[in-house]
Each structure stands twice: as C-alpha cells, then as structure tokens.
Design a protein around this nucleic acid. Sequence first.
DNA 1: TGACTAACGTACTAGTTCGTACATTAGTGA
DNA 2: TCACTAATGTACGAACTAGTACGTTAGTCA
Lengths: 221, 221
Amino acid sequence: MTSVEEPARPNGRIRDAARTKAEILDVATREFARSGFAGARVDEIAARTRTTKRMIYYYFGGKEQLFTAVLERAYSVIRQAEQELDVEHLDPVAAIRRLAEVTFDHHERHPDFIRLVSIENIHEAEHIAASEKLGRIGSPALEVIRRILESGQRSGLFTADVDAVDLHAMISAFCFFRVSNRHTFGALFGRDLVAPDQREHYRKMLGDMVIAYLTADRATD
Amino acid sequence: MTSVEEPARPNGRIRDAARTKAEILDVATREFARSGFAGARVDEIAARTRTTKRMIYYYFGGKEQLFTAVLERAYSVIRQAEQELDVEHLDPVAAIRRLAEVTFDHHERHPDFIRLVSIENIHEAEHIAASEKLGRIGSPALEVIRRILESGQRSGLFTADVDAVDLHAMISAFCFFRVSNRHTFGALFGRDLVAPDQREHYRKMLGDMVIAYLTADRATD
DNA sequence: TGACTAACGTACTAGTTCGTACATTAGTGA
DNA sequence: TCACTAATGTACGAACTAGTACGTTAGTCA
C-alpha cells in the first residue's frame, strides 16, 4: 500500500456521460468530414477519443446513427448562428448584403460542415430523411430573407419576381461552391478560391451579384 | 461430341481490349458516383461487368488508378462539350447568356460527373494532382469567357472589373450546387432544384443573375 | 500451322472492419 | 453502507475487401 496521495481515480477513469458523448461527436465530425462516411473508420474515431469503441455503440448504436448525430449537431450550429442574425433595422439593400456576408463567413469558418453536407448529398440525404430532428427543418435565415424581400419589393427597390428560397439557394450556391470545390477548382484553374487575400474580393463579389440581381430591371418575356 | 453447330465462341469468350476497358470505365463511373471512392467495391464493379476483377487490375493497376481514369474520362467529356461552344458570333450579352445556359445544361445532363467531382473534393483533389492528363488543364470555356468579357468591356456594356476565372466560378457555382446539393436542399426546404418543371425557371435565373452582375453600375469604393 | 503473347478466368489470402459478448467499476439513492 | 445501475473497458469473431498467384485461351504472325 503506497502512502503516496493517489489522485481520486486510480485508473484514470472518470465518468461523465455528457463529456464522453460530446467528445465522440467532436472526433467523429472530423473523421467523417475527412474521409467520408464509408472511408471513416469506427476504430479510428474511437482511438482518437479518450474512451473506447464500445462507447460509440453504447451511445449511438452504430456508425450510421453516429453520422446522423454528427449531422444533427452540425446543422444545429448553423441554425443557431442564423438565429442571431440582426438585420431588420437596415434598409433592404444593406440587409441583403449583410445576410449574404454572414452566410459567406459561416461557410468559410466551417469547412467541415460543408464537407459533411457534400457527403450527405452523395448519400442522397438518407440520414436527414431518417432523422426526426432534421426533416423539413428549414432555416431561420429563410424567414429573414422573406421579410427583407417583401419590404424591398413593396418599396419598389427590388424586382418583384424573386422568391425567398431561390435567393437563399443563389447565395448558398456561391458560398458553398467556393469551399466545397476549392480543391478541384484550384487544381484545374490554379486559383485558390479560399486564399485569405482573396477573401474580401469574393465577399464583395457575392454581395454585388445578389444586389445586382435584385435591383436589375429585367425584360419581361 | 455434339454435332450441334456451336457458335464460334463455345465459352462466350470474345477478346476486345478496348471494349473491356471501356465497359469497366462505364461501370466504375456509376459505382464510384453512387458510393464514393471508399464506398465503391471493386468486386461489385467487376460483377456488373462482363469481365472479372482480374481485368481491372490488369488494365488499371488498382482501385485508386481506376478512379483516376474515371475522372480523366469524365473531364475529357466536358472539355469536348465546351470545345463545341459557338458563341463568338453573338453580341456579348447574348453570348454570356448562351454560355451560362450551355454550362447549366451540361451539369443537368451529367449528374454522375457532379458527384465524382464532389467526391474528388472530399479527397482534396489528390487524384487530379497525381494525373498527368488533368494537372492545370483549365477549360476551353475559360478562353471563350475571356474573349466575350473583353469585347463586352471594350464596348462599355460590361463593368470593367470582372475576371474570367471569377465569372466561370460564379456560373459553375450555381449550376453545380443545384445538382450536387439537390438532396439536402430538397430535404431541408422541400424544394427540388432539379424538378423538370423548374428547369426553365432556374436556367433563366442564372442568366439574369450573370447579366445583372456584368451590367450593373457598381459604386466604386 | 504452330508458336507466341495479349487477354482473360478461377481460386485464394492476408489484412481489415463493424459489431458484440462478457467483465468491471464508479457513483447514487434507499 | 450496501445494493443497484449507468458507464466503461477488453477481447474476440464473422464477414468483407483489395489485391494476387496461377492457369487458360483466342488471335496473329512468322
């Protein structure tokens, strides 16, 4: 019997379900984003955790459900960011530009999220479809866009025929592509779309594009 | 010894290197696009072919090189389509719109290509980097864009500060996202971006967006 | 016509990978 | 304080998977 004051946990074993669960999700997010669903290894995820593979199955049930949980958490982060959007006090043009910039920034700051969404699309969104939390959840940004658009159209600043979901798709497309296709685009055209010194350039380009589209007088056909 | 007239090849075995190779590439394209690189199974690809797994290794060397060969062929198809682009006789506005539409149509017609590119981005374009055929190949469309832009800017129709690669990225982003993110977008917002009855709508939207951006008078900062 | 080789097929293996049976312990409430 | 359970760890197995060793045959050219 050693008289040395041992730390309270001789085996280094602490119990903290919440921490363990969160740590698994953190590591799984990185691994799935890095290697795709099939490419990610359950053993590898476990190894990068302070716990064991057993715990992944204990808490999540399996690889598939783990990926779904990763997606659910990733989407909840973006939804939270969108909820903090505060642009209603701006005039429509400034509000839309601000919204586009926030979207732009979020995509840039969360490349792992972009990769997860790309991967989920390869799997035809089957995990989203199977998730109760994610089905048809929409996004807070959509409501904001709807209100800004309406205000801008009422005042005659914006062209009348633009739909909120379409505008959201347009903004997302630009932000998403820039990050998701960074590597092939860079390899083929020799230009890094995510280079730091190009950041302001593309941020402005997005805003200019959206505003130009919204304020152009289109020939009615 | 049967006296029945056997077909010329009693074992059904015909030799045709070109056909075998092409068939492997066809099947591999579908399988990689469907399941991703790690998710695709060499045995499955072989099974869907009239030949055997042995031939995949005989002609391509391995799974990795097979994927590279699939990518090379897929890119050569789009480059060929772009080379047939004939818009130089149009005025700049019409030419850009036409170019956008051709890009739009090509993306819609080749969803497997989109998926392969998404997958290659998950792998950070390592196969493109390793391929002699694909490194920095650019695209014929770029040269076309360059010429139209120059002409439009010279005549004062277009704003001066637009770069050809950037414009190509803008057009590609819209076309690519619509196909690549079809499933997650549909699941989250309940709208199918590739629904046939929405096709003309989005095609027009892309053209309007690009022309609006190119002809807008931007406040210089 | 017969020898040579490119093209092809079969059967197998070594290593991997998801998942689980079973054992153990930390905390907690009676 | 003790029993009970949620939380955790270990060891293992069945199935899969990329890749290969070895044998065979169709076409062609000397």
